[in-house]
């Protein structure tokens, strides 16, 4: 174990490791590209679905069960299947990661909408806000914390799973994991795993900052008080 740690430290200390077309910086950019693009697309698909079922209350049972069913989709299988259909390009990676991220965002968006106080929604309608106004002025702002929880969970999973891109010969930090495995170089696998974990945690922290910024002040104060 100690030996492995020393090897990993040496692996990171190697100056040539960081720059160039195979360097950590390049791999980071690739990994970010796969993860962020997939997450953004997943949000664009999942958010409206979650908002719609949350607002209307219709199709909730169906959507939530479909979402939990979607969680069972084996990512490796999806990547390989799309690869066999589309050939050697990035589609398999994007499809698999988007499919991975959608269920958790739909579920959390719906949960956020469902958690909006019934009295508040009732008062909003009773005051004369129409459907869209209730959705965008009342429900969406109040659901922001839970929606962002979903996005954060999705990003962590997507970043970890984007490793798979290397299996079909693309880049990202997954390169180190697969190459290290093939070359029986555990230090390289370890290094790759650390880089991926650090990236996931960094993005999670960044998003928690965004979450705080997007959470309406009145709501944040209220939550702080009720947590006391």
């Amino acid at each position: 174990m100690g030996e492995l740690i020393a090897d990993v430290v040496r692996w990171f200390a190697d100056a040539t490791r960081w720059s160039g077309p195979e360097g950590v910086v390049q791999r980071l950019l690739e990994h970010l590209q796969y993860s962020l693009l997939s997450t953004v697309v997943a949000v664009l698909i999942a958010l409206p679905i979650g908002l719609l079922i949350g607002h209307t209350g219709k199709g909730a049972f169906f959507a939530i069960n479909l979402a939990s069913f979607g969680r069972a989709l084996p990512t490796v299988g999806v990547v390989i299947l799309v690869f066999l259909v589309s050939g050697l390009n990035l589609w398999p990676v994007y499809v698999a990661l988007v499919v991975l991220a959608i269920p958790v965002i739909v579920t959390n968006t719906y949960a956020g909408m469902a958690a909006v106080d019934h009295d508040v929604r009732d008062a909003a309608r009773g005051t004369g806000l129409n459907g869209w106004q209730v959705l965008f002025q009342i429900e969406l702002p109040l659901a922001v914390p839970l929606i962002m929880n979903g996005v954060r969970l999705a990003v962590v999973q997507v970043v970890a799973t984007a490793t798979i891109a290397a299996y079909i010969s693309f880049g990202g930090f997954g390169r180190y994991v697969f190459d290290g495995f093939a070359q029986n170089d555990l230090a390289q696998v370890f290094g790759g795993a650390v880089l991926i974990a650090v990236l996931a945690i960094a993005l999670d922290l960044a998003l928690s900052g965004l979450q705080r910024a997007l959470t309406p002040r009145g709501l944040a104060l209220q939550r702080r008080r009720s947590n006391r």
Binding site: D119, V120, A124, R217, G218, L219
Partner: peptide, 13 residues
């Protein structure tokens, strides 16, 4: 329209 618990919007002043 006034309801029990007031139904005020918690995110608005």
């Amino acid at each position: 329209y006034v309801i029990q618990q007031s139904g005020l919007f918690p995110h608005r002043t």
